[in-house]
Amino acid sequence: MQQIDCPWCGKRNETEFSCGGELISRPQDALGADDKAWTDYLYFRTNTKGVHTEVWRHTFGCRQWFKAERNTLTHQVVNTRKLSEETGEGHGDHG
């Protein structure tokens, strides 16, 4: 079982975390978004083979969401950052 480096708590067992899917941004002006932009946000993902930026949550820990770069081929989580560590906001598919 791999360890994931929670940006708030440090390295913890993978079983403490849940994956929220690809890092996406909810359109700022949702009501003004056209149907294509909105359904792209709802349903379309890059389905990356290789390193993929996702949101994960330390569910059985600090309960914080954070960004994680995960290799979809090896399942290795290679990098983690706080959501606030880069401009732009994002959330996963859980909503």
Binding site: R63, Q64, W65, L83, E89, G92, G95
Partner: peptide, 13 residues
């Protein structure tokens, strides 16, 4: 609760 936290943290922090 999880859903409230997710929206708060990810969309409207």
């Amino acid at each position: 609760v999880g859903s409230l936290e997710e929206w708060h943290q990810t969309a409207w922090p």
